[in-house]
Amino acid sequence: MVNRPVTPGETHVLAIEELGSEGDGVGYVDDFAVLVDGASLGETVQVEITDVGDNYARGDMVDAEFGFD
């Protein structure tokens, strides 16, 4: 059984540590990848989890004011 530390509807604050192959920002919750469309490398954003798969989750950016300007 795969450990999924996130569920749809939850919000998390993530540091975007890398970019995915399609340009999505990638942050982590307990070493579980969360892909965030529109997030930039180096930003810290609040996301709402929208979909959870076996190896990663997707989230929508709720607030980007945590980012570095």
Rank of each mutant, 00 (worst) to 15 (best):
H12N: 10
V52H: 05
E65V: 03
V13F: 07
V34S: 01
V13L: 10
Y56G: 01
H12S: 06
A57P: 05
G67H: 04
V36P: 01
E22V: 06
V45Q: 00
S40F: 03
G9K: 09
S21L: 10
G42I: 02
M1Q: 13
V36A: 13
Y28W: 14
V47L: 05
E43M: 06
R58E: 12
S40P: 02
T50H: 03
Y28E: 06
E17Y: 01
F68L: 13
E17P: 00
M1F: 11
H12G: 06
R4V: 04
G38Y: 09
G38L: 03
E65A: 11
F68I: 13
I49L: 08
D31Q: 11
A33R: 05
V45P: 01
V2I: 15
E43S: 07
Y28P: 03
V47I: 08
F32A: 08
G9S: 09
D30L: 08
G25C: 03
D51E: 13
V26A: 09
I16G: 01
Y28F: 15
I16D: 00
P8C: 09
E65H: 07
F66H: 14
E22F: 03
N3F: 15
G53E: 08
V13P: 05
D54N: 09
E43W: 07
D51I: 08
V6Y: 02
G9A: 11
F68D: 15
V47K: 02
E22H: 14
A15W: 01
G25N: 02
D54E: 13
G23C: 10
L19K: 08
D31Y: 12
G25E: 00
V29F: 08
G25T: 08
D60L: 02
D24S: 11
D63M: 04
H12A: 12
N55Y: 11
S40R: 12
E22L: 12
M1G: 15
V62Y: 06
A57N: 03
D69N: 13
V2T: 15
S40Y: 03
T11C: 10
P8G: 08
E65L: 09
A33G: 07
V36I: 14
V6W: 02
D24K: 07
D63F: 06
G27Y: 01
D63N: 13
V36M: 07
P5C: 10
A39E: 01
G42W: 02
I49A: 04
